[in-house]
Design a protein around this nucleic acid. Structure first.
Lengths: 349, 349
DNA sequence: TCAATTAGTCGTAACGTTTCGACTAATATA
DNA sequence: TATATTAGTCGAAACGTTACGACTAATTGA
């Protein structure tokens, strides 16, 4: 089954040309449709020769002369958070659609490592860079070197106004918080509590702004104990917050009839607190998460209604935008694009 | 803060050499320690020149002449399953450690696409390919072209004995099933039910073998209704199976006191069925999952004890193995390596 | 002191492409 | 018929490196 193992794909354009009895240049024209036409007869012979020699062109050599590698560098903080991987998935899928390849580099939010990676991408002559962030936080210095590389780049999910020029794709976190809250209010929930980490300048804060706006528009006064700060996004933090919230108004029917959590993992903790307290979800208490992590939301009991964040879409758009810029460098100008969230309905709210 | 924007990194080795007053070759030796020594004085001048010109070497040109790009191609079916991403994460992390970069390609389990990607990687002169599988199923044709490319490659998580030569890294699924079952038996569980999809030749079957072996070693007879087949790995399938199992022996105390699920998502369904039935977990019923998906296991109530599958380790090992082969091509021979699972203890078992 | 070694440097030939300018032969234009 | 135009082909010059062979100048050994 492996009689052809001898083809160590050493065949070069020169070989093909020789086999077809033409000059390299002609062979090149025949294969890739260069700037000069080539006769049907010659084309045939070249194509046949290439076929039978198992020729495939050396993209390094081509890249060296053309200056384009059809490759996009993706810079990400890590590879574990769904935030990052979903975006990368989108990037990869869209890139493949346009016959671009993707090279990966993680920087673990360390500026030095980030700079090394960016320089490396430049040295490898990537056509452009997409710098992904998994939080809306500004990681100081992580993308600072981008502008001086002279490569087209796009940042996603970073804080929009960090002063760096260039394209920018972000989640409309505020809108996410807004529709989530509106969804709960429309259900007739009277007292909604928002749970999330507020210490950092983060997505959770933006979501909170949406939470406030929805209340304001509905003419609802928001008391400050309707906002509960957590330290992290972990389930344990959610559980702690949940116990506090539900313990605060023990037997009171309308003490708190809905919780909007800044992440699905937090929401899982709330759900657990509800179980412990014996509350029915969504009957006594509605719970709404953020991120729409399928496995988690489906697995929870009851399954978790969650705000879907269009991460994959962000990745896809970034690629399209980058390629557009590469193809028409003239009519490009920096763009900031926000992506709206939507709600994935399940049982909990 | 961006006064240096002019440095369009056009500086070439020739420029550096000119600035330092030496020949290209000398500059190259000074920068990368070539085969000839270079005087301290010259080295200084070259390094300084390189520094002030913002020189970074063109890796394409270098790759063209050296034939090594310090780049590994990663072939994966998709980008959404944790199975795939965890492995890729391991690959990326380890590659970075050795100053290798990773380029990504998904083939969606379509043989044609897989072949295109593999040829592209060869054309880009990757040093080697790691072909990742997310299931232990053999996807026919997906990796068939690898051997004829003449590139070193490693397959992970594929079915080990699919006839293709080369390095191979796999999960010891049987051992996973074994330790999981043993864990439950050691707890004193009397009647354990295994839940998983059995129609396909898949990881779940291997796990079942371990389940059987543990019973045999403990001298326990296994009745066939202790094995429940599902169609999928989804939570809904787990719920269905759970209802069947728990409904089958309604009030009977020792009807079934433990469930080993072939995945965490299935286990989530079992947990839900337990809630519906009013059973206490782990008191009345122990539930053990497979895959150890952190967010999910931590989020469930009670949190899910799960068999951890060393996916990231597989990725890391593959990279080390590949680099070893690249560095010492002579003393290489095909290796198959199995990676053992371990149990991550949480509340449910 | 003379030959043999060696440290240091320099050209230059690869590597495998694309593309430019020049060259033929055929075709259309007047 | 002479001339401009074109289709088709070719050789050679890039692209930016590494590495080989040759060449000096200095150092060593006898």
């Amino acid at each position: 089954m492996a009689e052809n193992t001898v083809s160590l794909n050493k065949a070069t354009l020169k070989d093909v040309a020789r086999a077809a009895g033409v000059a390299w240049s002609t062979a090149s024209y025949a294969l890739n449709g260069g700037p000069k036409p080539v006769s049907e007869a010659a084309r045939r012979r070249v194509l046949d020769a290439a076929q039978s020699l198992g020729y495939s062109s050396n993209l390094l050599a081509r890249g060296l002369v053309t200056g384009r590698m059809r490759t996009i560098g993706v810079l990400a903080p890590d590879f574990h958070s769904t935030n990052a991987t979903e975006q990368i998935a989108g990037v990869e899928a869209e890139a493949q659609l346009h016959d671009y390849r993707v090279v990966l580099a993680t920087h673990l939010s360390e500026p030095v490592r980030a700079e090394i990676m960016q320089r490396d991408m430049s040295a490898r002559r990537m056509d452009g860079i997409i710098s992904i962030s998994a939080t809306a936080d500004v990681k100081p210095g992580v993308a600072d070197v981008l502008p001086i590389l002279g490569l087209p780049y796009i940042r996603t999910y970073h804080a929009p106004l960090d002063g760096l020029p260039g394209d920018y794709a972000a989640v409309n976190q505020e809108q996410g918080g807004y529709i989530a809250t509106k969804h709960l209010l429309d259900q007739g929930r009277r007292r909604i509590v928002y749970v999330g980490p507020l210490n950092r300048r983060d997505a959770a804060r933006k979501r909170l702004e949406g939470f406030r706006r929805a209340h304001a528009e509905a003419g609802r006064v928001l008391s400050e104990d309707q906002i509960v700060a957590t330290e992290t996004f972990y389930t344990s933090a959610g559980l702690e917050a949940g116990r506090e919230i539900l313990g605060r108004h023990p037997a009171q029917a309308v003490g708190c009839d809905a919780v909007l959590a800044a992440s699905d993992t937090l929401a899982a903790g709330i759900l657990r607190a509800a179980h412990e307290t014996g509350l029915q979800v969504p009957g006594d208490l509605a719970v709404l998460g953020f991120d729409d992590i399928t496995d988690l939301c489906d697995g929870l009991y009851p399954s978790l209604t969650s705000v879907h964040v269009p991460l994959s879409e962000i990745g896809r758009w970034s690629v399209r935008r980058l390629i557009e810029r590469l193809d028409h460098p003239k009519d490009w100008e920096p763009t900031t694009r926000y992506f709206d969230c939507r709600i994935t309905l399940r049982e909990s709210a």
